[in-house]
């Protein structure tokens, strides 16, 4: 599958602080790609780099089959819709006027304003000044601006930020139907994996400016094994075996089961054999699946930072 976004060794440093380092991002065409990481991980910086709003310290960016250069940037932007940080708007103008202004700049047709207002369900409020809008309505207006001109690529930075649970639910439903309604590849960032796991098919997990995982969402689950639970007839006989396997300090007892950290399959097979030989009576072995949120936490923790999730 071809990629709509490809970066190679992308770095951005501000003085001695590195915001993004060695990023090799691959966003497949037609996907909804979740770009996830704790606050300060470098998500917004990366998105600004993709839009040419900030200049990379090193590395290259390829968008929509073209290298991002000062010469190609405007052409790429004409096929890209974006919402970076909080939505931008002119408070003294109405929603329709704001959209007409952006449509004019994008070279989009005036009738496109009607279409995007309908998509974000703002048609009844089109003649209201945006200064009177709630945060949720402004976010929807921001999405509408991004959708003007039928973009091939949508870059949305934390579009659910600051919304109440009902607003998040509504925004999620809106974003989920975006590829079907608009046919665009969507790159969407969030610091909450749980918020995106229902709508994305690919994820990239970012921490401290580095990509920790990238690939299909299903692969993330396989990528990280869960704890192993052993059901034993004589748990007391298991202790010497676990000690010799180097697991003594890592094993814990939960509801009559011995729970071990994630193990490689070959190692687990050997361990079960040893426990059986020692007479511990292995009657059940199960691998506990972890939620995506737990996987995300373990990945970012392993990278040295818990992050705010």
């Amino acid at each position: 599958m071809q990629n709509v976004v490809m970066t190679s060794g992308l770095c951005k440093a501000y003085g001695s602080r590195t915001a993004v380092q060695g990023l090799d991002l691959c966003v497949p065409y037609g996907s909804v790609y979740g770009f996830i990481g704790p606050n300060g991980a470098g998500k917004t910086t990366t998105m600004k780099l993709l839009l040419g709003l900030i200049h990379p310290t090193s590395g290259s960016i390829r968008l929509l089959d073209e290298e991002l250069t000062p010469q190609s940037r405007l052409k790429i932007l004409s096929r890209t819709g974006s919402l970076i940080e909080s939505p931008s708007y002119y408070a003294h103008l109405t929603a329709a006027e704001n959209l007409q202004l952006v449509a004019g700049l994008k070279g989009a047709e005036a009738k496109d304003v009607v279409r995007v207002l309908d998509i974000v369900r703002l048609t009844p409020d089109a003649r209201r000044k945006v200064g009177q809008f709630s945060l949720g309505m402004r976010q929807r207006l921001g999405i509408a601006m991004a959708l003007l001109g039928w973009p091939t690529l949508l870059i949305l930075d934390e579009p659910t930020n600051g919304l109440d649970p009902a607003g998040i639910q509504e925004m999620r439903a809106l974003l989920a139907e975006m590829p079907r309604r608009c046919g665009a590849t969507v790159l969407i960032s969030s610091h909450l994996l749980s918020e995106l796991e229902q709508i994305v098919d690919h994820v990239g997990i970012l921490n401290k400016g580095r990509l920790l995982y990238q690939g299909p969402l299903a692969g993330l689950q396989q990528h990280s094994r869960g704890d192993v639970a052993l059901r034993l007839l004589h748990p007391a006989l298991a202790a010497p075996v676990l000690k010799s396997a180097g697991l003594a300090g890592l094993a814990r007892e939960e509801r009559g089961e011995v729970v071990l950290p994630p193990l490689k399959e070959a190692f687990l097979a050997d361990l079960v054999g040893s426990l059986a030989a020692a007479g511990a009576g292995v009657v059940g072995v199960s691998c506990r699946s972890r939620s995506l949120e737990e996987i995300f936490l373990s990945l970012t923790k392993a990278d040295g930072e818990t992050g705010v999730v």
Binding site: K48, L51, L53, L74, K75, L77, S78, T80, S82, I84, E85, S86, P87, S88, Y89, Y90, A91, V102, L105, K106, G107, M145
Partner: peptide, 18 residues
């Protein structure tokens, strides 16, 4: 000032105009 408010800078500079 219209561009200095909020994040309007990102809006105007991500438009396909020089």
């Amino acid at each position: 000032r219209l561009e200095h408010l909020g994040h309007n800078w990102t809006l105007v500079l991500s438009m396909p105009v020089p």
